[in-house]
Simulated assay, not measured.
Amino acid sequence: MLISMPRRRIAAALASAVLGLGLLTGCGDDVSCGLDQCTVTIARETNASVEVLGVEAKFVSADDSTVTLDVAGEQIQVTKGQQAVDVGGLQVSLSSVTQDAVQIQVSR
């Protein structure tokens, strides 16, 4: 029994590492990820998109404080300073809006 106990711990540690790496899949140059949350920067141009946590997010439109995105095939609006929006199993919130880009937080 003493021999199998360390093996279980090693297996559990490996499983956790694989899960963590799986959550990071899809993170690219415009995406900075932690274990279960990503900061995403999307250009303010027609059809700009990025894949994050296995889901595609596309820029649709924006004004000074509200951004419309297509996330996982659903169109949503996120407003700076307001609660995150649930979509496709993710929580999406707006961090900032500039003339050139929008920055959102995406978490599981």
Results as ranks from 00 to 15, higher is better:
L2N: 15
L2E: 14
I3M: 12
I3A: 12
S4C: 09
M5K: 09
R7M: 14
R8A: 15
R8F: 15
R9I: 14
I10V: 14
A13S: 13
A13W: 11
L14R: 09
A15S: 13
A15P: 07
A15D: 10
S16N: 14
A17Y: 07
G20L: 12
L23T: 11
L23Q: 09
C27F: 03
G34A: 11
C38S: 12
T39M: 04
T39L: 04
A43Y: 01
R44F: 04
T46H: 03
T46V: 05
A48E: 05
V50I: 03
E51R: 00
V52E: 00
G54P: 01
A57T: 09
A57V: 11
V60Q: 11
D63L: 06
S65G: 04
T66E: 06
T66R: 06
V67Y: 03
T68A: 13
L69S: 08
G73T: 09
G73W: 00
G73Q: 01
V78W: 00
V78T: 08
V78A: 03
K80P: 02
G81I: 09
G81C: 08
Q83F: 13
Q83E: 15
A84D: 13
A84Y: 08
D86E: 15
D86P: 12
V87S: 06
V87K: 07
G88C: 09
L90N: 01
Q91P: 06
V92Y: 01
L94A: 12
L94W: 02
L94D: 05
S95M: 12
S96T: 11
D100M: 09
D100H: 07
D100W: 03
D100P: 04
A101C: 07
I104H: 05
I104N: 04
V106Y: 01
